[in-house]
Structure formats: structure tokens, C-alpha cells
């Protein structure tokens, strides 16, 4: 299952903004449809992707980073036994996050804590706005 989160970066057109306003309630109800659920936030220097994947070691996860996307892949294995109730999802999953900004691929870090994966992607230096001083002649 691949989910494309297209207008993540730079939603400037009115149409994009309209889409975004429609998204806010929708994104909550998306819980349960797309697995694993993830949150994306950013500040001036980094993009943070947080993902709820309980019961996985970070070594069992397959994180692939290209210039424009981050792919999180893995498989949740089930326990053998006689099931009385099964609500936890099992099987392989995959999610893709599109990144529409230049990133510093060599300094991406990922860590897992209490079943929550956090990937920190630094934005590339080239992309930062620079102040140009104008000298009055």
C-alpha cells in the first residue's frame, strides 16, 4: 500500500490550500486505513517523520531514502498459538513520504523509542533563504 502525500511542501496555490483544509478532519479518520500511522512536522532545519510501529526492532525495518521520498517498509509477524481475539495487524506494510525539498541525505537519523519511529531529515543548506545585503552606493 503506497500513500502519496503530495502537497506536503509548499502548498501555495489556492487549490492546494483548499485541499489542505479538507484534509484536516480527513487525516484523523485515515487512522486504520493506512498503516502505519505517521505524523510529519518541520522546522527551519529539519523535517521530522514520526511513525507508530509497535513491536518492531529498528533492525527489522527497511528505510529507503531517495532524493524525493522516504519509504518505510517492514513486516509484523504474528505469534503462534490459539487465538481468542486478534486485533493487532500483521503482515508486511509500506508507506512512502514524498519530500519536495532538497535534503542532506548523509545526515538522516532514525531512532525507535517505545514503538515510535522518528526519522529526522536535515534540509539541505543550499535551500535556505539567504539575506543579501545591499550596499548603497
Amino acid at each position: 500500500m503506497v500513500i502519496d502525500l503530495s502537497p506536503f511542501y509548499g502548498s501555495t496555490t489556492p487549490f492546494d490550500r483548499l485541499l489542505e483544509s479538507l484534509w484536516t478532519p480527513l487525516s484523523i479518520s485515515q487512522r486504520g486505513i493506512s498503516y502505519p500511522p505517521l505524523n510529519i512536522s518541520e522546522d527551519d532545519d529539519h523535517i521530522y517523520v514520526r511513525c507508530e510501529i509497535p513491536g518492531m526492532n529498528i533492525d527489522d525495518l527497511d528505510l529507503t531514502l531517495t532524493d524525493s521520498s522516504l519509504v518505510i517498509k517492514g513486516e509484523r509477524k504474528s505469534v503462534k498459538g490459539k487465538y481468542y481475539r486478534q486485533e493487532r495487524p500483521t503482515g508486511s506494510f509500506q508507506r512512502m513520504v514524498n519530500i519536495r525539498t532538497p535534503i542532506d541525505r548523509d545526515n538522516v537519523t532514525a531512532r525507535m523509542k517505545d514503538g515510535v519511529l522518528e526519522v529526522t531529515i536535515p534540509k539541505s543548506e543550499d535551500n535556505k533563504p539567504k539575506k543579501i545585503s545591499i550596499e548603497a552606493s
Partner: peptide, 22 residues
């Protein structure tokens, strides 16, 4: 939380997904 209840030879096991809980 999503929960599995399983019976094995040595007893019952309950697994609960609680991501983010320390």
C-alpha cells in the same frame, strides 16, 4: 489498544499495542 489474546501450552498471553507509552 489493539489486543491479541492467545492460548499456548504454558498459559494465556495478552499482547497490546501501546506505542509511545514508556
Amino acid at each position: 489498544p489493539a489486543t491479541d489474546v492467545i492460548e499456548k501450552e504454558d498459559g494465556y498471553y495478552i499482547y497490546m499495542d501501546m506505542p509511545g507509552v514508556a
